[in-house]
């Protein structure tokens, strides 16, 4: 049994909706463990607080109550040890691809001369050789997210937190990047946490899936994904894959139906909506 890198105990988190003053309970007593070096996905219906959970792990948000520990210590704020890959990439448009990847290196005070070479190494790792000096607006969505991945890896993080990283991409690009991320994960020995509402993606990529309940979010169940290794694209037709998928679909469906029954307005549950982080 590997030791946990994250431990959450009875975490509560609410948001105030400034429009009507209603307090929205995003997480209601969530407890979980994330193990060192694993690839784990967090999945749940829209509005189940997946992104809230990820932002708590990243340190952008603090729990209202409960405990959230990273390697035995309370999460107090963002850190490059727990870096994030964003759905909308979050690249700095005023920096080139290399400039973006150099950002965390500069933050570590690496001298300028060494930075460039190091950045090019990561750019090459995500197959973007030759695009180092392009600006984000000159790159396609898939390429932007590759830069996002290279930039996150340049932090030399212990944990990579991914917030729907492929949601804005077309299917083929999405699949290619999924395989790429898996390849990077298996070579690096880092912990990867993926938030997604895409079940197939979660099964394909993870060793474990944490399924969240409808709001307020809690862990509904944790499922080990015991699929043969290495994971390749044709695993999606494996009988065990199909079995896991139908089982998880049922479980997820129950939660979605609960949200609908609870009359949670679609507008409020939009996971894509920005979670305001206090400045």
């Amino acid at each position: 049994m590997m030791k946990p890198i994250f431990t959450a105990e009875a975490v509560h988190k609410s948001f105030n909706d400034p429009k009507n003053g209603v307090s929205l309970r995003a997480l209601g007593g969530l407890s979980l463990e994330i193990r060192q070096g694993e690839f784990v996905s967090i999945i749940g219906p829209s509005g189940s607080g997946k992104t809230t959970l990820l932002y708590l792990l990243a340190g952008f948000l603090r729990p209202d109550s409960g405990k959230l520990l990273y390697r035995g210590e309370e999460v107090r704020g963002p850190s490059p040890e727990r870096t994030v890959i964003f759905q909308e990439y979050g690249l700095f448009p005023w920096k080139t691809a290399a400039g973006n990847v150099e950002f965390p290196l500069k933050a570590r005070c690496m001298p300028a001369a060494a930075r460039r070479a190091e950045a090019l190494k990561y750019i090459s790792m995500v197959h973007l050789d030759g695009f180092a000096d392009k600006y984000p607006h000159q790159l396609s969505g898939g390429m932007k997210q590759r830069v996002g991945i290279a930039r996150a890896l340049a932090c030399d993080p212990k944990v990579v937190l991914m917030d729907e990283p492929f949601a804005a991409l077309d299917n083929i690009t999405r699949e290619l990047l999924q395989e790429e991320i898996l390849r990077l994960w298996s070579g690096l020995g880092k912990t990867f946490v993926l938030v997604t509402h895409h079940l197939e993606e979660a099964i394909f990529m993870s060793r474990r899936i944490i399924l969240m309940s409808s709001r307020p979010g809690r862990v509904k169940e944790v499922v080990d994904i015991d699929l043969p290794e290495p994971r390749t694209a044709d695993i999606k037709t494996h009988p065990r894959f199909v079995e896991l998928k139908s089982r998880l679909t049922r479980s997820l469906r129950e939660e979605v139906e609960k949200s609908i029954a609870a009359g949670i307005e679609p507008e409020l549950v939009k996971d894509k909506g920005v979670i305001r982080v206090s400045r």
């Binding site: 700095f92 005023w94 570590r108």
Partner: peptide
């Protein structure tokens, strides 16, 4: 943009980098 601030902080930017590499170029 919120996402640029969050990105900068999760990439380890200190106050100086937040000012010189994020705030000023963003506002330029």
């Amino acid at each position: 943009e919120e996402i640029h601030l969050n990105a900068a902080r999760t990439l380890g930017a200190g106050r100086k980098m937040l000012l010189l590499d994020v705030a000023l170029p963003s506002a330029l």
